[in-house]
Amino acid sequence: MANCPANRPIRTVGNPAKLAIGVYPDPPVVVGFAGDGNGGGHGTAGPQIGRGRGILWLKLEQENPFGSIKDRVAYSLLSSIFESGVLCRGIIESTSGNLGVALARYAQICGVEFTAVVDPRTSRKLVRQMRSADAKIVEVAEPDETGGYLLSRLAYIRDRMAAEDLLVWPNQYENPANPRAHSEGTAPEIFSTVPHGELDVFLGVSTGGTVRGFTDYVERNRLSWRCVAVDEVGSVALGGPPATRSLNGIGASRSSSFVDGRACLNVKVTAAEAVAACDWPGVCSGCPVIH
């Protein structure tokens, strides 16, 4: 932080363990998030989603205890299980990485066995973190019909659930505890920190829980926010034809149970556009915020 140029400051606000927001005054019109929602109009060719020049606020969720926004989802999912009183010998969940790390840590704290179902694209670093928290790792290597692995991971979980008593699947893809983590946590934190008024909120899509949680909060409080779902080209989370994808942790091989792509403002980006968008704050400020 100390080396940031004075004319392009980054400020952290609130409790660093819970809330950190990078602020970039007067960024250019958003270029990396242009598209028609169906994989077309990338770069500067498609319609612009941004309202123009302004301030870009980045929610730095790596400041959470276990390193990502999935800490919130993991806590909410496990709370929903324990509060229900269901008998639980162990927990199993499909994960592309970050949720598995958070679930592994919370399960370790609670003394519950956790099995993470991953695939070959899962970061080896994150797999090591899960194992360090005593998680059992199952890697599903057979691609599904869309070219991804999600449907294959889910099929494995369903087989295990049918065969083993007292094994609990939180099911991040359909459990309302997923969006609730954001409607009761992430969104209110942002509202309490940024200036009130119009705000475009760009939210990555995988299960769709983040978008649904923010949308619920915005509608309930009648805010002048526009929630924009950001998906990867080739993902079917918001609809559209499947195609090979290279990014991990965004997009999905199945439609979201929480968000209808036809009913929400959304854009699809390529892997190159996503990487460029992550590099942009560091290029402009001299102080990269993506680790």
Rank of each mutant, 00 (worst) to 15 (best):
P5L: 15
N7P: 01
N7Y: 11
T12M: 12
V13R: 04
A17H: 05
I21R: 09
I21Y: 09
D26H: 08
P27G: 00
P28W: 13
V30G: 14
N38R: 09
A45T: 08
G52K: 10
R53G: 05
G54H: 04
I55P: 00
L58N: 09
K59Y: 13
L60Y: 14
N64P: 15
F66H: 08
K70P: 04
D71Q: 06
R72T: 11
V73D: 03
A74R: 02
Y75P: 01
L77P: 09
L78G: 01
S79N: 15
S80Q: 11
S80A: 15
I81H: 05
F82H: 11
A104Y: 08
R105S: 06
A107R: 03
Q108H: 03
C110A: 10
G111K: 09
T115R: 04
T115I: 13
V117A: 02
T122Q: 11
L126Q: 14
L126H: 14
V127S: 01
R128I: 01
R131F: 03
S132A: 14
V138S: 02
E139N: 01
E145M: 06
Y149E: 04
Y149N: 07
L150T: 13
L151E: 01
L154K: 13
L154G: 00
Y156D: 03
R158M: 00
V168G: 04
P170I: 03
E174H: 05
N175E: 07
P176I: 14
E184C: 06
P188M: 07
I190E: 10
V194M: 10
G197C: 04
D200T: 08
V205H: 04
T207I: 08
T207W: 06
V211W: 07
R220A: 14
L223E: 08
S224P: 12
W225F: 13
V228P: 04
V228G: 00
E232C: 12
V236A: 11
A237E: 04
P241C: 07
R245S: 02
R245H: 14
S246E: 05
G249T: 06
G261E: 01
L265H: 05
L265R: 05
E273Q: 10
A276R: 11
A277I: 12
D279K: 15
P281S: 03
P281A: 13
S285A: 03
P288M: 09
H291R: 10
